[in-house]
Design a protein around this nucleic acid. Structure first.
Lengths: 199, 199
DNA sequence: CGCCTTGCTTTACGCTGTGTCAAGTGAAAC
DNA sequence: GTTTCACTTGACACAGCGTAAAGCAAGGCG
C-alpha cells in the first residue's frame, strides 16, 4: 500500500511545504489558485515548484498523493469494518464519509473540474474513486455474508449504488446547499440505505 | 415562467448560432473550449461574441438559458406527474432524469467546474438546481398525499434526499464510469427509491 | 584544499487566451 | 441622405503558464 516509488526531485521537506501551501490555497480560492501564490506561500521561488512538480497538473497529482498520506484512511476504515451489525456498518461508513468529504471537499471540487482538461489529473482522481468503489464493494459483500442484503440487489449493483449515493455531489448538495449538518447527513443517509438495501 | 426580460444585444439569430456553437464546443472539448473557436464555428467574428455576451461567463450564462429554451422540460414533466401510482411516478421521474443528464452532461460538467470561479455562472446554475429541488419536492408531496411516504421521512428531508440522489454525479458515475445503460439506471434508481421512501 | 553535485534563486523571455478599443463597412430605417 | 444597427477588422494590454540560462550556497569527496 506504499506510494509507488516514483523518484521525486529535491528536498522532501520543501516538497511537503509546497504541497501544504497548495492544499491551503486550493481550499481558499478553488481552481483559480495561482502557482505564483503557491510559491510565495510556501516560501520558495516559482521555479522551485516547476522543478518539483513539472507543471500545474503535476502539482495537483502530487496533492492527491499527499492527501492520501495525511489522511491515512486505513485506520478509520478498520473501525468501520469492526461494526457488529450491517446497519451499524452503514452508519459508521456514512459517518466516515461525511468527515472525509468535509476535509477533502475543496480539492475534490477542483479535481472534478479538471477532469475534461488534463489526463494525468483525471487518472489520479479516478484512481482514488476506484479505491472507494472497492471499499463500498467490501461493505456490500459483508452485508451479503450476513445474509442481510435485501432481495432484488446483486452485489455489484448494490455496491455501485452505494458508491454513487455516497459520492461527493450528494454530500455537497445536502450539507453545503441545503444546510444539513453531519449528524443529519449520517442519519438520513443511513435511513435511505438501511431501508433500501437491508432485509 | 418566461425568461426574465433582459434586453439582449443584436440579432437573435446570430445569438442563437453563437449559443449553438458554444453548446457543441463545450460538448466536445469541455471547459477547455476557446472563444475564438466559438466565433469561428458560428461564422462570426470573435468580437461579436463579446458584443452579445460580454465575456466568457456571460456566454455560459446565456447557454444555460438557451438549454432551458431548447429542452422545454414542461411537457416532459407533466407526463411524469400524470403517473397513476407513486411507484410509477418515481420511475417516470428517473426515466426523464437519465435522459436529461444525458443531453446536459457535458455542460453540467463545465458549469459545476466554474462554481468556485465565477459568481454569475454559479448563480445561473444554482438557479436551475433550485428548480430541480422544487420539482422533486412536488413529487414527494404527491407521494405523501397518496399516503405512501414511508414512516421516518419528513417531506423536506425526503425531497432533499431524492434531489441529491438524482443529481448529476451519481448519474455520471453509474452510467459513464460503471457502464450502466439508461434502463439499468432507471431500474436500480427506482428500486432504491421505492424501497427507501414508499410504504 | 579544490572540485563537483544538489537544490535551489534570479532574471528573462515566449506563448496562449481573455478582454478592450477604435475605426470602418454594409444594409436597412426614417 | 443621413442615421442607426449589427457586425468586422486589426491592434493592443495583460495575466498566467511554462522554459531557459546563469548564479550561488552548502555539503560530500577525492
Amino acid at each position: 500500500m506504499m506510494s509507488s516509488e516514483v523518484p521525486t526531485y529535491g528536498d522532501p521537506d520543501t516538497r511537503q511545504r509546497i504541497l501544504a501551501a497548495t492544499w491551503s490555497l486550493v481550499s481558499e480560492r478553488g481552481a483559480g489558485f495561482k502557482l505564483r501564490d503557491v510559491a510565495q506561500t510556501s516560501g520558495v521561488s516559482r521555479q522551485a515548484v516547476y522543478l518539483h512538480f513539472g507543471d500545474r497538473a503535476g502539482l495537483l497529482v502530487g496533492l492527491v498523493q499527499h492527501m492520501d498520506d495525511v489522511l491515512d484512511l486505513g485506520a478509520s476504515l478498520s473501525h468501520v469494518f469492526e461494526a457488529p451489525t450491517s446497519s451499524e456498518l452503514l452508519q459508521r461508513a456514512m459517518r466516515l464519509n461525511t468527515e472525509f468529504w468535509d476535509t477533502v471537499a475543496p480539492v475534490a471540487q477542483v479535481l472534478e473540474a479538471a477532469q475534461h482538461d488534463d489526463q494525468a489529473i483525471t487518472a489520479a482522481w479516478r484512481d482514488r474513486m476506484r479505491l472507494r468503489q472497492q471499499v463500498f464493494g467490501m461493505m456490500i459483500q459483508r452485508i451479503a455474508d450476513n445474509g442481510q442484503l435485501a432481495t432484488g440487489w446483486t452485489i455489484d449493483r448494490g455496491a455501485a449504488m452505494l458508491y454513487a449515493v455516497a459520492g461527493f455531489e450528494p454530500w455537497r448538495e445536502l450539507t453545503r446547499e441545503l444546510g444539513w449538518d453531519h449528524d443529519t447527513y449520517v442519519e438520513e443517509m443511513t435511513r435511505i440505505l438501511t431501508r433500501a438495501m437491508l432485509s
